[in-house]
Design a binder for these strands. Structure first.
Lengths: 209, 209, 209, 209
DNA sequence: AATGAATGAGTCTTCATTCAT
DNA sequence: GATGAATGAAGACTCATTCAT
């Protein structure tokens, strides 16, 4: 994510050697595990360090403070999601609008749902974290990826593609999150996802034609 | 909200006298204020009590613990929103689908946006709160209200109204929340809201009559 | 108990009317109940008042503070025990030393054991209570009662009856309390009690006669 | 003491280094001091830490909570007493019953009386502490030590040594504690102690022969 | 006289962060 | 560089006591 993070939230050092990268990864994974098993109010630096198999001191070598760790964790997560969506978008260049929408909805939904508990945990970790910059950067990446894709569609041209696109993303992202929070049964979620696709499609037809 | 709250989250006593009611209100308002001005990690029982102009002890006479306070706060908020939406829905009985959708989107959007900072604060306060019951109850109320409204539409009949309705609500609620979190400029928000209305409309036309 | 209690521990008012006496009794009984069911660290004035069926305010009319309540409770308890022992002693005037010792041990043991949980609770309540005066007064009453009894024995005369007597009481009271704290099975307790009687008897024979 | 303490009462870590051992000792001593000077109801974690010259945090590194500290303190104390009595018993192997009893009474009395204020403080600290296991373990150790000693006496054989022994210990321990609580003048205590010895001796003669 | 809501000092306990080893 | 013991400020919550009604 090329978001310029609020100065105080940046990690202390970039992983140069493999050793560092492994440690960093362990810390991230540990954070998620603690978040999952203990809940956010038991997410302490000591516990994370312990589960990561490093000392607190070492952890503080990587992150100047707890917030920086959580910030980085979210950054990393959004990066992964963004990459998946971008890849999916690029793969659809020139495809039909229908396919595009189906793929977009499915990809995002899956990215969020695959480890749904993790996603939920991360949502929690982001609270009271000054992560606007992160979200903005993510949104911009997504915007760029989907606009480029939509523009390549052979069957549609949009008068106001920026607006159409931002609407499309708002609706998709928002709906996914909403369903997330309601914890509906998988079958119902699938139905809603399908309806969402239909809705987006009809919207694009209406807007693009 | 007729959600049966997890036993441990229920408030300690109901305000019988006017005095109590006023105190309760002061506590709620104070909680919101602290949440707004200080952020969730500075939301302490002491601070809330202080701003509410009561002693901590008094606060604990109303709520057995901090979580119960936050739970009650969310409950109260969702009640207000639910009431507004219900009222709006009832007022549209027999109106055109177009009007219905417009009113629904607008009402919900406004209910959330009017004191948008408060809404945001409440979203934060809900983290790590076992408020599933609350959300469920809210969702059911909304479901009932909108289904009843849609059924009264003279210009449409839906084969699978339950699915259509839950999709509609998921999309609307989700999109509103999403835009919320992105903190877009008001003008852009308005545009998206408009597009959302169009999208819902086209979806209903496609699904209904 | 005619102990002059430390000024600050005396009850606020003496029960003049039946009403007061009943209330007082209720408070005492409630205190014991709370002590038994909740433990000493949950023995709060509110809880006691609640179980006694009176308001805290009322309770404070009877006792200027919590300590005074506990003091009075212990006083009352020791009075009851003392009365029982005194009565038993008087009834043995002129009896044989053997009978005297048997009765003394049995009476005291029973007085403590009958509601052994209560006794235990009271021991706990006495901690950090300035109840030396109480214990002294009790000891003096017991001393007087047993000395008078022993003097009336037709079969023995003691050179140093004061010392013999204080030893006797120390041993009996101490042993009872000790067995108390160890919570031994009833059968074993009975055996020990019997042995204790034999021991006392042999001691008296050795000292008197 | 090889009592298996109730899980939740065990100390957090064993002192490995000298440093830790010193800290631990300081905490124990501080606890006793506070108990002595301020009384049990002013025995707070903060005060103990302060007097021990460490931070509360450090204290909590050694003991998971206040109760664990008190438990450990009692454990340590009983260990010391037990060791003294055991040593004394072993030293009397083969001695006369008279000597044995004299040594037993004297040793126990001294162990408890030397720092009588401390003993008293510890009795208080034990209230509302689930220390049955501790007391049991102590009792068993004492039982074993004195039975072994008595068996080695050249001048007596007991038909029912278990019962005789438990009675003996009950009487001695109980009487000591009782005199303790009454706070009698030292001279009178000495007299009682002497009488106690005589009484025990006469009991053993009667039982052993 | 009785009530019980209100008070707020005081308790235990946690945990981010530092720094001597 | 890594460690993890030590720190102590800050938080949630309790409860003896008062006093307006």
């Amino acid at each position: 994510m090329d978001a310029t993070p609020p100065q105080h939230l940046s990690a202390r050092k970039k992983p140069r050697q493999a050793r560092s990268a492994a440690t960093l990864e362990a810390i991230f994974e540990a954070t998620i595990q603690v978040l999952l098993r203990e809940g956010i109010h038991r997410l302490t630096t000591t516990r994370v360090a312990e589960r990561a198999g490093v000392s607190v001191g070492t952890m503080y070598q990587y992150f100047p403070h707890k917030q920086a760790l959580l910030y980085a964790l979210n950054e990393r997560y959004l990066d992964l999601v963004a990459e998946r969506v971008e890849a999916a978008c690029q793969a659809q260049y020139g495809a039909s609008t229908k396919t595009m929408v189906e793929v977009l909805v499915t990809t995002y939904w899956q990215a969020k749902t695959e480890r749904s508990e993790v996603t939920r945990a991360l949502y929690r970790s982001a609270v009271e974290l000054d992560n606007e910059a992160l979200i903005d950067a993510f949104a911009r990446r997504m915007d760029a990826a989907t606009i480029a894709m939509l523009k390549s569609a052979p069957d549609a041209v949009y008068a106001n593609i920026d607006l159409v696109n931002v609407t499309l993303l708002s609706v998709i992202f928002g709906t996914v999150r909403n369903d997330f929070e309601r914890d509906l049964p998988a079958s119902e979620q699938a139905e809603i996802r399908h309806q969402l696709t239909l809705m987006c499609l009809s919207y694009l037809e209406m807007s693009g034609g």
